[in-house]
Design a binder for these strands. Structure first.
Length: 842
RNA sequence: GGGCGUUUAGCUCAGUUGGCUAGAGCACUGCCCUUACAAGGCAGGGGUCGGCGGUUCGAGUCCGUCAACGCCCACCA
């Protein structure tokens, strides 16, 4: 093919040019005619569509793309879909802020509603349907922006295989999987204490918790024995004295042996309470006696359950103390005291109760300040409360040892990249203390697809769940009637009630292999891609996304959803601890791409080792850019000698020597990629490439410009080695390699075959020749540098001493060496390796 | 309180199963407009490999211990 080499090659514009061409040629389109063993399937993480992407996303996605491109070049058909995680709370929050609205499910749908152009000061309340419609609209816009960024970055995904976690197909898959869990008894509903976010007014799962250090005060509070003696407890939550159901101490605590089984009355409220023993009580914490409330913390829940205590809830789902005085407070004084805190938030009630206890003399001493961990919803601003509520759960091994053991075993069979990430999974599964709570009292998500029978009184019977037929999915139980009922029977005695909750976003994204592989509606495709080859993702969502995907796959298919989990590292601020400079200086990926180019950003990402935390580093990006420019220029030289020459022309020892080295590099880079170590593959290829340009190119330059068989050998060797380097770099720098490839090759470099040692068969020589000659050349350059003269300065004499092998190696490339060094002859002598170069006029 | 990871030149990081005279790039110094490349190229200076102790003929690499930093987990009395 004729070579079409630009005079001044440049990086600018390559992203748009090749993105358009790849799209037009369907270069990365998945060919579903391939069989499972010819396919490499990737369970791409669907990014959360809630505004802008950050560098952390770019980092992991580019690394995965490098692995994907390598696999494609080895001949695998790559199944590389892209999803958007748009369902769930992040989208709701973004819509609320963006439009200045809030969802009020009690309002009727307003078909004419248009959001104001500017968000108003006071949020406008809108119906659930209007709210969801805004969510859809905004996420669609965001998804376009995201897709554009991914394209600019050069992700080789097949854009015809995309999905959104809120689209009908995902909803159908999610509901179908849930119904199957329900049918097999893996999902169940139960009314129980749950961790509750009072602002979002939803239950929260264990995986979404985080502890935050908060200041609190230990209040030493007196309870009263019948004989008037005081029993002290210490609590940070005196406001919960009214919901106290018992006191507890450790069974072996000598101080309290005599009072176990007796009773006390609570201060101010005068409620009679037992003193019980339980080994979770810690003798050296506070006074050694704790009050059990329903519920101040998760230990309370444990005690309440294991000691079979009554339920005395006072905090409601809106986070406030209930207004009516609870019936277990029957004294006149108790009722009066409760009225002081009725309707308050816990922090308000806490101060009030502390005052009242002090007045009554039941608070001893000054409250002591402590810093203690408090449970928060990871997206929330106020401490979680524990309220009793009916929720849906999926069994996850948190309460069944057999299942837990099985899940641990599956985790051991998964190939973790890097290895140590596997322990995070292990610890998470070992630490599970309850089933997976999947229902959320929110709006933008996949509905829990069930209804409940209403009895003669109109009370729902949660044991009589009505399920839809699989063929009718997705369903919205709040607006559709169940099979065998009509809409008129909604809410009527003898009729039905639809479940109002939606599923947690993880309940849907735990099914990404099933969604992307079309388990629901294309079993042929699913069989070709599942179980998938890799699950790339961040370390922080091992406990959520990875674990839940594994669980759902185990339930539905009885297998691991993928063979390998490649876990990327964490992204650190460019100036790490130097926070002074980073004020308000948010780095967006698109800004970096604009400044340094996609190749540079990709290069930076691919330099981050698998699983290793990496700082945003502009210096590394600059190097990436320089490498890309170097590829353009070196290619211009290597291809500047006319038509292709057959490799049989490669006869010169130094050319064969270079190819011998390159053949080894091929093996090393390939091994690295086979272990999903894109970073090492890049490092190996890059080191080789720089010495190729610095030494080999300089050494053969003169000969390449000449004529005859010697020149032809150089031309053929340059062409073969360049072809190898372009393929080496194609996974990392897809645009510039494709650009150069197009100068002289048909088709895409991304569909070219990955280099193999077989390409060098019969073309290699002694590696030592190039190495030794390069050493001599470096010594000559040093001499010229020391003399502060131009590299063009001629040598009056050049003498090399070394072993017999060294000398033979240099001799084999003597003509090229003399040309590059500007010498006329080389003198050889046996001895220690040394080079003496004498300059003319020196 | 437990677990995992990190700690190598001023900065950002490589260093695979122990053999290194410890590397790269940036930054720094000097030189060079050499016909692929001056938003380049060539050459150079710079490190007691976090501390201490151990195993070994030999340790940046293995073991123990301590420290700093980061992340994850942990029952809020």
């Amino acid at each position: 093919m004729t070579r079409d080499i630009p005079e001044k090659p440049a990086l600018e514009g390559l992203e748009e040019k090749w993105d358009a061409k790849w799209e037009a040629d369907a270069t990365f389109r998945f060919d579903r005619s391939k069989s499972r063993d010819e396919i490499f399937a990737i369970d791409t993480p669907p990014p959360t569509v809630s505004g802008s992407l950050h560098m952390g996303s770019v980092f992991g996605y580019v690394q995965t793309d490098a692995n994907a491109r390598y696999q494609r070049m080895t001949g695998k058909e790559v199944f590389y879909p892209m999803g958007w995680d748009d369902n769930g709370l992040p989208t709701e929050r973004r819509v609320q802020n963006f439009y200045g609205v809030r969802c009020d499910p009690s309002l009727p749908h307003d078909p004419a509603f248009v959001p104001p152009s500017e968000p108003p000061d006071q949020p406008i309340s809108i119906s659930r349907r209007n709210f969801i419609s805004l969510c859809h609209g905004l996420t669609e816009e965001d998804e376009k922006v995201f897709e554009q960024l991914w394209r600019t970055l050069g992700l080789s995904v097949d854009w015809t295989q995309s999905y959104a976690t809120i689209d009908d197909h995902s909803q159908r898959t999610s509901q179908k999987a849930f119904l199957r869990n329900l049918e097999r008894g893996e999902a169940y509903t139960q009314d129980a204490p749950v961790l509750w976010d009072v602002d979002f007014k939803t239950a929260v799962a264990q995986a979404e918790l985080e502890d935050r250090e908060r200041p609190g005060f230990y209040h030493r509070v007196a309870f009263h024995r019948p004989d008037g003696e005081k029993v002290f407890i210490e609590t940070t939550r005196p406001e919960l004295v009214c919901s106290c159901v018992a006191l507890v101490a450790h069974p072996d605590d000598d101080r309290y042996q005599s009072i176990f089984g007796s009773t006390v009355t609570s201060p101010l409220f005068g409620v009679e309470l037992p003193i019980l023993a339980h080994e979770l009580a810690e003798p050296d914490k506070g006074s050694g006696v704790a009050m059990i409330c329903t519920w101040g913390d998760t230990t309370d829940v444990t005690w309440w359950r294991e000691l079979d205590l009554p339920t005395r809830t006072v905090i409601q789902q809106n986070g406030r103390f209930q207004v009516e005085v609870p019936e277990w407070i029957d004294s006149e004084r108790g009722r009066f005291v409760y009225e002081q805190i009725a309707g308050l938030y816990p922090n308000q009630a806490r101060k009030k109760m502390a005052d009242l206890l002090e007045e009554s003399g039941d608070l001893e001493g000054e409250p002591k300040q402590v810093i203690h961990p408090v449970k928060f919803y990871e997206k929330g601003d106020r401490p979680l409360e524990i309220v009793s509520s009916r929720q849906w759960y999926i069994r996850n091994g948190g309460r069944e040892d057999d299942l837990r053991k099985k899940l641990l075993e599956l985790g051991e069979h998964l190939d973790w990249v890097p290895d140590f990430m596997g322990v995070r999974y292990k610890h998470w599964v070992e630490g599970l203390n309850g089933d997976w709570l999947i229902s959320r009292q929110r709006f933008f998500g996949v509905s829990i697809p069930v209804w409940y029978h209403l009895d003669d009184q109109g009370i729902p019977d949660y044991d009589r769940v009505i399920v839809p037929a699989e063929g009718s999915l997705p369903v919205d139980p709040t607006s559709q009637a169940p099979p065998g009922f009509t809409e008129e029977q909604r809410g009527e005695p003898g009729g039905f009630m639809g479940d109002r909750d939606i599923m947690d976003t993880w309940a849907t994204s735990s099914l990404t292999p099933q969604i992307a592989g079309h388990w629901d509606d294309d079993p042929d495709l699913f069989a070709r891609v599942f179980p998938m080859d890799i699950r790339p993702q961040g370390p922080e969502i091992i406990r959520t996304w990875l674990f839940s995907t594994l669980l759902r796959s185990h339930y539905e298919h009885g297998v691991l959803p993928w063979d390998h989990a490649t876990i990327n590292g964490w992204i650190l601020d460019p100036d790490r601890k130097k926070m002074s400079k980073s004020k308000g200086n948010v780095i967006t990926p698109s800004a970096l791409i604009d400044e340094y180019g996609s190749e540079a950003v990709r290069y930076w990402a691919c330099n981050g080792r698998p699983g290793t935390d990496t700082a945003v580093d502009f210096g590394v990006m600059k190097i990436g850019r320089r490498l890309a420019v170097k590829i353009l220029n070196a290619s211009r030289f290597a291809l500047g000698f006319g038509e292709d020459v057959d490799v049989s022309a490669i006869t010169q020892p130094i050319d064969r020597s270079m190819l011998a080295g390159l053949s080894e590099v091929v093996e090393r880079a390939t091994t690295a990629f086979e272990n999903y170590d894109y970073a090492r593959a890049l490092e190996v290829a890059e080191a080789s490439f720089w010495s190729w340009t610095d030494d080999y190119l300089e050494l053969v330059k003169g000969r390449a410009y000449s004529n005859g068989a010697e020149a032809a050998s150089a031309h053929a060797a340059l062409q073969l080695s360049l072809s190898v380097y372009l393929r080496f770099f194609a996974p990392f720098l897809p645009f510039v390699t494709e650009e150069v490839w197009s100068w002289w090759r048909e088709g895409s470099v991304h569909r070219a075959v990955w280099p193999t040692p077989g390409e060098f068969e019969g073309l290699t020589g002694d590696e030592r020749i190039l190495a030794a000659t390069s050493e001599v050349l470096t010594a000559v350059r040093r001499a010229k540098s020391d003399a502060k003269t131009s590299m063009r300065t001629a040598l009056s004499s050049l003498r090399v001493s070394g072993s017999e092998d060294d000398l033979a190696a240099v001799k084999a490339a003597e003509a090229d060496l003399l040309e590059a060094a500007r010498g006329t002859s080389v003198g050889y002598e046996a001895g220690e390796f040394a080079v003496t170069a004498v300059l003319e006029d020196a």
